[in-house]
Design a protein around this nucleic acid. Sequence first.
DNA 1: AGAATTATTGCAACAAGTTGCAATTAATAA
DNA 2: TTATTAATTGCAACTTGTTGCAATAATTCT
Lengths: 149, 149
Amino acid sequence: MQDHAGHTHPHDHNGLLTQLAQAGYRMTPQRAMIVDAIENSHNHISAEEIYSSVVTRYPHVNISTVYRTLDLLKAKGLVTETDLGNGRVSYHPTSKGHHHHLVCHECQAIIDLEESVFIELKSKLKNQYGFMADIEHLAIFGHCSKCIS
Amino acid sequence: MQDHAGHTHPHDHNGLLTQLAQAGYRMTPQRAMIVDAIENSHNHISAEEIYSSVVTRYPHVNISTVYRTLDLLKAKGLVTETDLGNGRVSYHPTSKGHHHHLVCHECQAIIDLEESVFIELKSKLKNQYGFMADIEHLAIFGHCSKCIS
DNA sequence: AGAATTATTGCAACAAGTTGCAATTAATAA
DNA sequence: TTATTAATTGCAACTTGTTGCAATAATTCT
């Protein structure tokens, strides 16, 4: 396995890859590079963007491996998946914190929300329905203040 | 145009088709049958189900027409679109009332919610962000009471 | 009613994401 | 270090949904 470092977190001993390994999953160069692309993305990253990033260093990689690694990370709760309505689903490492978005249907603006906005809803769903809502990275669609006025 | 009736609302003078016509859109047999399938569906219906229903009476129809009609109905606010996480997007006529769902990631159970659950969130988003959220048919994912215990 | 206009449709190609299966390879045992 | 085993990958085929474009047909005008 070649060295895939050179970014902000050279070896990432507490990163996603290590967490996968500790959960009993195998450490493959594909996973290392996929995870590296996700961790070094500034905010959101799509499957295609991850693939593009990996394929330059490892041309053999297939995009289905990217999707399968994302499925694994989702199932382990290590990344969140959000559909921001732009035709490609966005991914974000859970470790970088929860956040949410308002998406304007008219001007496509994306407004960031604090996590606290959904605390009340979450406890309501827990108390009234016994349901533990996975509200970690939600997109709510509608019309922004600019487009209303 | 052949008669496409035979269901609960034989001519549907106040239905989706009439509303489209009043908005200046053309009345085509395809649209009549697509809209008929939606209005006569018991709860949710998918694009494929609409297509299957229409194609038996009108074999020439193409599924892209179904998708385009759904886009139109969505844009006019006449149907709502919800991804219940089962691989196919579900549609529902707005006129039959708003409702929401909790979807269990573990057992795939779908729990129906009253609209009132989101009133508080909606006003919070309006007051704090000036954002009018289109919360008409939401699916919230998480873990149901049975799967937690 | 017949001609003109233009929205709508069917088609085929495309995009995003999923899946079954044989080949590969990381981890483990010998 | 080599052999074993089973997770993982690449590939190709598939599913759901989208889009450009030429042909069709609903509506409007005469």
